[in-house]
């Protein structure tokens, strides 16, 4: 079990719990001001924290302390006890999920919205409508700065069709908990222009934790077509000339499942992280 599931799942995975996607429950817990605050200040937090963290990261001892501080902010404060302080990303984490898991979350929520991705707008000045906030997170998305286009309410079927399209394009699906464990936004990210994946992959901040599965190549089925190589955004897949097969570095794998979807021979299987003793604590 990942830390979020252990703390909030009650035996299930955290994103399979119905109340974690319900607008009613989020409002009862008083998260409406938190959500508005998040939309208003997410840009400032990224730009200012990134600039400050950069100086600290140059020093190895400081870097370790900054990492610990950020882990504490994300995971060790229990957001459901209402002690969330505003204007700081307390309890805002995310997890990489497979397409099937994401579709399950969207069906469970039943209230998807569609907006422009705030990361790509902020970092690339590109208009990219791929962010699918759910429930309360979508309702409050109008609080976002004026660079935002309109917030659109879409149906569950439309949302799932979009997810499949993004999957074909090779985007990593992540589910953001704002705050954890409230499952409130489905992101379709690209490295490096994502404000959460960039700090995770390049700097080691655990804004995004690895998924519940890891990809493994079935050596008997792999024909060495190299289809999967370009799909991995984390540099986990390489082609081995000696054996003529793809090799997946499971320590680097985030479990997004993009390689498994594209394999024409179904030679990549997603196995449960818990079933591998070495990787079961590697999130």
């Amino acid at each position: 079990m990942c830390d979020i599931c252990t703390a909030h799942g009650g035996g299930k995975k955290w994103f399979e719990v119905k109340r974690h996607v319900e607008v009613k429950f989020a409002k009862e817990m008083g998260f409406e001001p938190w959500e508005k605050d998040h939309w208003q200040h997410v840009h400032q937090q990224y730009a200012q924290l990134a600039a400050q963290a950069g100086d600290a990261m140059a020093d190895p001892v400081m870097a370790e302390n900054v990492r610990k501080m950020i882990d504490n902010l994300i995971f060790q404060i229990h957001p459901l006890n209402k002690n969330v302080t505003f204007t700081f990303p307390q309890g805002h984490g995310a997890q990489v999920l497979t397409r099937q898991e994401i579709e399950g979350v969207i069906k469970l929520s039943g209230e998807p919205y569609l907006i422009e991705c705030l990361c790509r707008k902020m970092i690339n000045n590109a208009s990219d409508r791929c962010c699918i906030p759910l429930g309360l997170h979508g309702e409050t998305a109008e609080m976002f700065p004026s660079k935002q286009e309109k917030v659109e309410r879409i149906s569950v079927d439309e949302a799932i069709a979009l997810i499949r399209k993004f999957n074909e394009q090779g985007r990593v699906h992540t589910l953001a908990g704002t705050p954890l464990p409230m499952a409130m936004a489905v992101c379709n990210c690209e490295v490096p222009n994502c404000i959460a994946l960039r700090p995770r992959v390049d700097m080691g901040f655990n804004y995004i934790i690895r998924g519940h599965s890891v990809a493994k190549v079935d050596v008997d089925k792999c024909i060495g077509c190299k289809e999967c190589l370009s799909r991995c955004q984390f540099g986990a897949i390489t082609f081995q000339n000696a054996t003529g097969r793809a090799r997946i570095d499971m320590w680097k794998c985030y479990g997004c499942g993009l390689c498994a979807e594209t394999c024409p021979e179904k030679a990549i299987e997603l196995i449960d992280r818990e079933s591998l003793p070495a990787l079961k604590d590697w999130w």
């Binding site: 400032q44 200012q48 950069g54 490096p192």
Partner: peptide, 30 residues
């Protein structure tokens, strides 16, 4: 190519005019 810059509005509370946006080399160490 390294996604170094970020555009944002500092000190924002309610609504923001286009002139208030600034660009910051947030990830300049890349």
């Amino acid at each position: 190519p390294e996604a170094v810059f970020a555009i944002y509005a500092p000190n924002r509370e309610e609504g923001v005019a286009p002139e208030e946006y600034v660009i910051s080399p947030a990830m300049q160490y890349f």
